[in-house]
Design a protein around this nucleic acid. Structure first.
Lengths: 331, 331
DNA sequence: GATGAGACTGCCAACGTTTGCAGCAAGAGT
DNA sequence: ACTCTTGCTGCAAACGTTGGCAGTCTCATC
């Protein structure tokens, strides 16, 4: 079906080796024959078989990317940047969506492991031991999670969280509710810890509601619980929950940014479509993706490098309209 | 590195053929040895090499998916459903993002073509002739676009558009502005035509602004133009533009759904996070993805099937708060 | 007990590519 | 004229898998 090396070779009256060399290692062959081969190859539309090449080289020039939910707006920017960076480096990207199904994460990763050189995993809930074991079988980089013995790119929520709390305090808030994400999510724990630390440092009372799934619907439910508490400031596990909260509260006739303050995390593009716009902790999604690719390719380049690194990316608060002075301070 | 057939064979004192058969064609081998082989294979962690298999079978069990912009919220649900359906059928998905860069579309598709069995293309702007030619080289299914000689899954915007216009008319609108998408986008042409037809049928005056890129920012610019016209109803090329419009108008102090009516297309999850929520023409994104996979796999199963089909999916209007009675009818 | 059928298994070639090694020719140096 | 180098090319093996073909063994049948 497809044009093979042998066909090009026949058309040029040379051996397949020569064609192979002419196309991959141009210095090794006579300039004149090389030109002829290149011309014929182009003309015949030759393109090397990945399978053949992969069989002898042992590499696939492909990386796998596993995400929990493509539809969660936090991930598309990451996928996009992983894809872009990988393409720059001549790697293809195989994508897999676990649909937030924990049990599938490992199985999927294992399945992928035979057809990729390395894996980028954004799987917040699988048990650490399993991940460590996986990382021993092939190069893996984790996104938004630290794992023993594997490279990872994580978010340092402390900076952003501290700014968020200070922002609320400066407005006059003394109590904050955390709208928790999934219990076993690594990043949920990070965020909660960072918030607890920031609250302690600022002498703020911290409450918690949840857990909630990272979805708008869940945020709407969270709004109901939030409204029946007396706390006027909430920081949500992510933008989706925050947006759901805002949507429901606004629908109920409450003025977000005046009667109640809401802060999200991720600073996804959606933050700007609501009114008021959502104050959110900015997470550098694009950098997250490209850093993950870079880390992975480093590992591929020198297989048993010393210690896989952890890259830590900073966060910062982006203040918009969803936060304001608490009502009790307004009289 | 990885466990091979030969190693399993050695451990079992049988030939590689037998192991191969035991694992892929269980009936052909003695029950007892099969059991032994399966046990050893599992124990050694054997998994077949995709490259080896692919070399002899000529198939890759992988499909390629090319989209113009992963970050555009219209696509993640499609990607998700493509991925899910493909996985059901034991296919992997290779993803590529053209970043709305027309020139890359073809090049990317060609590059992918050597490592996939078939391609799903959501590339609105490449020239039809190029696409037809591509479709001759390998099975291709187009999403949201019809191409000569290739399968495709498209949206029938007529139904939804008609409902949208009728809805606006029933509220009292006699003039509608279309906020156009990219000029050369196939689906933009479809939508505009459908709208023109519906307007003609309902004796409604149709104006047009644009073109606008399918992005929130562009929608915000569109809002400015819209505001300075005297038309109180707008239908946008997609939800992103519509949301941008709403956001900017609300920010300007206008009451969307009262002073001005806005309708989007796609009915993405974001439609529900704004206040008022966005009235939008629902596009069945998940069905789009899975239908595309089904169509493609049909083509793979029997290579030169008669005529590649076009699957047409219906749209319908989802009425929310962003549409209302025009101000001039309120006095 | 010879023959045939049937069940199972092994051998080997093939898929398309890369690469170490050897071969060959031409030219340079003695 | 001989050897040595240099530059180029071909041969053949290898990667891991599958499948056609043929071989072996067992058992039933006459």
């Amino acid at each position: 079906m497809a044009v093979t090396l042998a066909e090009v070779a026949a058309a040029c009256n040379v051996s397949t080796s020569t064609v192979s060399r002419a196309l991959t290692d141009p210095e090794k062959v006579n300039a004149e024959t090389r030109a002829r081969i290149e011309r014929v190859a182009r003309q015949l539309g030759y393109a090397p078989s990945r399978a053949g090449r992969s069989l002898v080289s042992g590499r696939t020039d492909t990386v796998g990317l596993v995400v929990p939910d493509i539809a969660n707006p936090f991930f598309p920017p990451i996928i996009k940047s992983v894809q872009a960076r990988a393409r720059d480096k001549r790697y293809a990207v195989l994508i897999a969506d676990t649909d937030e199904h924990v049990a599938d994460e490992l199985e999927l990763a294992r399945g992928l492991s035979r057809q990729v050189d390395g894996l980028i995993l954004a799987s917040p809930r699988t048990a650490p031991a399993d991940l460590t074991r996986l990382a021993q079988q092939l190069p893996v980089v984790f996104v938004n999670r630290e794992v023993e013995g594997a490279g990872s790119v994580v978010i340092d929520e402390n900076e952003g969280m501290q700014e968020a709390v200070e922002h609320l305090v400066s407005l006059g808030h003394r109590r904050i509710t955390y709208l928790s994400g999934p219990r076993r999510s690594w990043s949920n724990q990070q965020r909660r810890d960072a918030l607890a630390k920031a609250c302690a440092a600022n002498d703020v009372e911290l409450r918690e509601l949840g857990p909630f799934e990272p979805q708008i619907q869940a945020g709407m439910r969270a709004a109901d619980l939030l409204q029946s508490s007396e706390v006027a400031a909430a920081i949500a596990y992510d933008d989706l929950i925050a947006l759901g909260v805002m949507s429901r509260l606004t629908e109920r006739g409450m003025q977000v940014g005046r009667e109640i303050s809401v802060i999200g995390i991720d600073d996804s593009p959606l933050s700007t479509v609501t009114h008021p716009m959502l104050t959110s902790i900015h997470v550098p999604a694009a950098e997250l993706g490209s850093a993950a690719v870079d880390l992975l390719l480093d590992q591929l380049r020198d297989p048993d490098s010393p210690t896989p690194l952890t890259v830590k990316l900073e966060t910062r608060l982006v203040i918009r309209g969803s936060t304001g002075i608490p009502p009790e301070n307004l009289r």
